[in-house]
Amino acid sequence: MSDIAIQTWGLTKHYGDVEALTDLNLEVRSGEIFGYLGPNGAGKTTTIRLLMGLMRPTRGRAEVLGLDVHRDGPTARNSMSFLPSDSSLYTFMKVGQYLEAFGNLTNAPRKRRDELTERLELDTSRKIGDLSMGNRQKVVVVRALQEDVPVYVVDEPTRGLDPLVQQEFGKIISELRDEGRTVLLSTHVLSEAEALCDRVGILRLGRLVQVDTVADLSVARMRRVTVTFDGEAPADLTIPGVSDISIEDGTARFEVSGSIDPVIKALARYTVVDLETDEPSFEESFLQHYESEGGA
């Protein structure tokens, strides 16, 4: 198998005057989970639609396992499974009928379908239209992951899933990686990328601004922390690596980049009643970081 599962060269897509994606040069290695990160409208879905042959590039090209996704479209897609971000269901069908019908299109093995429905606790006898949003998303996930292929392209897969199912989804994705399969996971949820991915690419305004390992991603990640002390907050509170610190009565608020460990160690000297961390939006946490580094 090729070392590179997905590769693009100057992949560009314009919608009229709008540059949705510009000169994307991307390499996703075989056997890794690659997080494709970016805020809404960054160009993630455009990239995926170009890879799946749903759109033609304005210029540039893309290959999956050495096959051009446009010139060798059907053959390239024979190695890929696609989980789109939008709901893609026939609501009048029963879950089992739907999974079987779409499984037949790609010769998905029944055994794998049964395993996945069991693990995600999906009732195949129910009509899709009667399911909750979360259960509908489970159907979409099983439909995509039932296929036995080397490359999975998944766009916002955990939207609407409850935390336990998200966890199970994470396990399934990790198992796919352990089996040597490649996953391109598009998301705007940083914690999801941190938990699942080996490497991440960060996209902004249609341009790839950074490709990092997850360890680097954690360093760049910013959190808002609110600490409530027992009594007045110490006036001499000094914590390495924090910014925008403000103290009011018994509460200190600040932002921290990267590991939260120094914060915990610094706070250990005081009596802390409550500690809250809050993840800022993608735009706030990451892109500011890369802008300040001149990456954008």
Binding site: D86, S88, L105, T106
Partner: peptide, 14 residues
């Protein structure tokens, strides 16, 4: 309209 066209066209056929 249902979004299923994306999945159908992502199948390995022209």
């Amino acid at each position: 309209g249902t979004g299923t066209l994306d999945v159908l066209l992502a199948a390995p056929m022209s």
